[in-house]
Design a binder for these strands. Sequence first.
DNA 1: ACAAATCGCGAACGGCGTTTGCGGTTTACA
DNA 2: TGTAAACCGCAAACGCCGTTCGCGATTTGT
Lengths: 228, 228
Amino acid sequence: MSDTAASGPDRQPIWSRPERGSRGPAPAHSRDAIVLAAITLADTEGLAAVSMRAVAAALGTGAGSLYRYLSSRDDLLDLMTDRAVGELRPYPQVEGDWLETMVLLGRRQLALFGAHPWLLDVIHRPSGIGPQSLAWFDNCIRILEPVRCPVAAKFETIAMMTGVVSLFARRESAAGAFSFAGVDLAAYPHLVAAFRQPSGPAPRADLVERTLRSLLTGLLLGESTEAG
Amino acid sequence: MSDTAASGPDRQPIWSRPERGSRGPAPAHSRDAIVLAAITLADTEGLAAVSMRAVAAALGTGAGSLYRYLSSRDDLLDLMTDRAVGELRPYPQVEGDWLETMVLLGRRQLALFGAHPWLLDVIHRPSGIGPQSLAWFDNCIRILEPVRCPVAAKFETIAMMTGVVSLFARRESAAGAFSFAGVDLAAYPHLVAAFRQPSGPAPRADLVERTLRSLLTGLLLGESTEAG
DNA sequence: ACAAATCGCGAACGGCGTTTGCGGTTTACA
DNA sequence: TGTAAACCGCAAACGCCGTTCGCGATTTGT
């Protein structure tokens, strides 16, 4: 008559679903242990290696058993994401101005993407926001409190900052991986001319910070730099 | 002794592999027809609906037959991407200054993402760049010719512009899809306070352009706006 | 003419997420 | 305290996926 604990009608999201009932025997595993095993697997072998069977094997059980704790693989990815976002704690105190604090948060995000590259494949799914992500968002709103602009603009700015940081993280992880094999470069004259030109000293070490600063001020203060 | 035309050792990428040999009977389909069917399927039912079997069924054949024209599903996605990028033609003539032209190119990219939302799920894969993408890149380099800065900076800026445009496109496609169901909002005081605040008039209609302008000038001219 | 190469096709393989049914265990409640 | 409901782990199975293979038929190069 009853169904598995996690599946079934599946009305409420994973965050508010109780981990176990009070009737049966003690579970052999825990939701957090499963998530931890999945994160370890994703860190070492990539997100593609995070299959239900592989995660279950890492815990010494079968794939079907995981559905006592989760209702789907998407739930697992949501839990993984939120747990990883939790590593952004503790949040820095607001010491200087809000801009420096936000840039610091961006650098922390960048480091998180470096520690868990699979986050890049996961953040863009339309899915439920977990409590850790909400807490991080809440902290951003707190930092931006002195900024006098509509709330919607703050929301959009925070999302855009996260997106831009993810772009930088992606550039670092897949640096120069694309190859021109099998194409006739003669058809692209400006490209080959640019390649012939001696490469500049590549001076920008603070490209991320400069970009973030420009983005934050541009979006929040409503003033964009003009150049002719 | 022989293998299928597209599979086998698979040394050279799809761009330079001949579509068919000269020995056997005439093929019933073509590489481009397959790609077109796949794009139509992706446009209407999403990228997840683009399975080998579904594409083959749309052409009235079996899944295995597609491997006479392609060596893998990844090849199909590469071809789809490059064909979609080809819709960015014809490129605008350089009339005004380079900044306006680049912003125009960014708006065209945004429109392309709107026409083919599955591009958002595809562009970030590390894979071979097709001839249309190379042509678009070549055109960007041409537009940026009057800008005096290292070539590497131009490459990074173009990639970053594409990335930022993809972020905006994603925001438009999944507008306000996240729900707070199942979470206790009381734990996030700054969030609820921000929500209580009357939402501003949401004035920015040119947010994309302002962001792109700020990004391009910031990355290429090396001057970032400072705000205290 | 004949062999080599290619065609469409259907069956099959291994892997995936997920469901289901089962025997055994623990708890809530009459 | 007895019993029924709820929960556990497990293994098998379902349907889908990308991909491979072998077959008879067809076309081409020499």
